[in-house]
Write a protein that binds this DNA or RNA. Sequence first.
DNA 1: GGGTGTGAAGCCGTTCACAGCA
DNA 2: TGCTGTGAACGGCTTCACACCC
Lengths: 214, 214
Amino acid sequence: MNTATIPNRTIERLSLYRRLLSDRLQRQQSFIFSHDLAAMVHVTPSQVRRDIMVTGCYGSPTRGYKVEELIAAISAVVDDDQPQNVVLVGLGKLGSALLHFFQGRRANLRIVAAFDSNPDKIGRLYAGIPCYPIGELASIVESAGVRTGIVAVPGEAAQDVANAMMLAGIVGILNFAPAPLYVPGNVFLESIDLTSSLEKVTFQARQRADAVLV
Amino acid sequence: MNTATIPNRTIERLSLYRRLLSDRLQRQQSFIFSHDLAAMVHVTPSQVRRDIMVTGCYGSPTRGYKVEELIAAISAVVDDDQPQNVVLVGLGKLGSALLHFFQGRRANLRIVAAFDSNPDKIGRLYAGIPCYPIGELASIVESAGVRTGIVAVPGEAAQDVANAMMLAGIVGILNFAPAPLYVPGNVFLESIDLTSSLEKVTFQARQRADAVLV
DNA sequence: GGGTGTGAAGCCGTTCACAGCA
DNA sequence: TGCTGTGAACGGCTTCACACCC
């Protein structure tokens, strides 16, 4: 199956399914139905089956999907053959929280280096990961074959950091800075805008609260 | 304009536009074109104009939109009349980082209380916000008229926290815990799954990196 | 000429519906 | 009976295209 044609959303859900499946596997559950996964991710069973289609994994009408098999099939699509190295720039409160969060969460997705402009932080370990000056970004990215970078700096510095990343050869950026980033088309950018997310939820909460009154 | 019919995505983008517009306003820019906003948010100019339509704000072909006017129009759609109070549960690394991040970021979106199960944290201030025991959630939610809650606890505790929130009357939940949450249809749930986001970016980075080799 | 405003068209992810099967 | 696999239909967000205006 050509992975290039898989919808973005599907990749995201597959990643979710896998984590949930791992939970189930640990609890000795060896089979699962599409409607079961669907309820956990808040999508329809059809959606789940569609998503699973791209993995080429087949289930049985009587028992559903074999959990172990499905995890392997998803991994074959989502993961690379070898572990992927990731770097994180910005060890402020959010950056170090993210570092701790990601650390050890997935075996083949490792943050191998962190960067900060604060001299006091250079050389220290955060969640077991060394902090380097931003000047060493390029050499570390190259030597570790890094393709993915996480931006967790203040908005004013975000574009500079992104530029440095791209110059170093990074082609996927996960941005948490509340600032617009300009990247060329050959670089994938995902911006998680915390403020917008919170505002969206608050807006919807208002709609729900108001609906009750009508 | 009936706010109930506005697409979810539009709300999210409007929130983004507003922040970017505020930046421009501070830099004394008083007019802006749709293509300018579009470039910052990585959407098409048509998309921007469509989004702005729902605000009822009109621009001029020669000068574009009046920044100040547009901010006000967006606020009229996105914001409530009075400031919205929000609570956050879970003052671990991620929770306190989020608290600091959100604190003071928007005037009419205030985190008024934080909650944690750790007795050592109770009574202390985090980013100026007091930490309460989870048992006081209901009373604080009620007295402060809170409709929105942020979940930043470990996955195992997330559903319990969400249940407590909903019981207290919260109808909008922003979840950062890596766990499936079950909520009834009258509650709006937005889950930010950091691991899935990172995996998606890494997947796309691989696609880009591989594409070069082809 | 290069903007905006907007009906109409397009597109892509989602859902339906049903054959196939244990 | 109830689930999977999947072609076909659907729907809603996005884009097009163009009238209108400075």
